[in-house]
């Protein structure tokens, strides 16, 4: 059992600007499972994700399963070049992730096929979010770090996003997600809750 983990976090503490954000967090992410990080605004949910992604300094241990060298991340900022078109976006990230399949299917899935020549700055908030998830799919990583994945989205987009997360979990991937809302959409046996206060 212990060898099958995707991500193991032990006694993780983070300090930012001489202030302790969280102390001694421990959890294990197994394939097909989702970990939901609860906490108020400013509690350090995003910092936790950035620690796991090795952006912030931390103390403690973070073990990622051998063979996973890339973590998928969708944050508050959508990390899109605002003045590019969707076509440019796919052309760029396809090369970075060596994505060989046809990205038209991804576009079709997200209902973005009609906007392929539209500059990203003209897209709505939800459409930009969908584009960040499209990048996540192209990346093909086992571990997804999602920062408030469904906040601010309408019901239809929310369902689309949840469907991909569920598909990712069913394929043996793992998700570490933060949310200040209740995310009660997942199998309760496969959900772990971590509280930061």
């Amino acid at each position: 059992m212990s060898k099958k983990y995707l991500l193991k976090v032990k006694n993780l503490s983070c300090e930012r600007n001489y202030k302790i954000i969280f102390k001694k967090l421990s959890f294990i992410l197994f394939p097909g499972n989702i970990i939901l990080v609860d906490g108020e605004n400013g509690a350090g949910k995003t910092s936790l994700l950035l620690c796991v992604a090795d952006v912030l300094d931390y103390t403690g241990n973070i073990l990622v399963k051998n063979g996973i060298d890339n973590l998928g991340y969708v944050g508050h900022k959508n990390a899109l070049f605002e003045n590019e078109t969707i076509f440019d976006f796919f052309a760029f990230w396809k090369n970075i992730y060596n994505y060989t399949k046809n990205y038209q299917d991804v576009l079709e899935y997200f209902n973005l096929i009609d906007f392929i020549e539209t500059p990203i700055s003209l897209l709505s908030f939800g459409q930009k979010k969908k584009l960040s998830f499209a990048r996540l799919i192209m990346m093909n990583s086992k571990i997804w770090l999602l920062d408030e994945p469904i906040s601010g989205l309408d019901e239809k987009t929310k369902q689309i996003i949840l469907k991909i997360i569920k598909k990712h979990l069913s394929q043996g991937g793992g998700v570490l997600a933060t949310s200040h809302q209740n995310l009660n959409y997942f199998d309760i046996n496969k959900t772990t809750r971590v509280k930061i206060d």
């Binding site: 060298d69 890339n70 973590l71 991340y73 900022k77 990390a79 070049f81 605002e82 990346m139 770090l145």
Partner: peptide, 12 residues
């Protein structure tokens, strides 16, 4: 500002 730098960093 758009977070692309962060994305680069996370994607190594």
């Amino acid at each position: 500002q758009s977070g692309i730098l962060l994305q680069y960093k996370i994607n190594k």
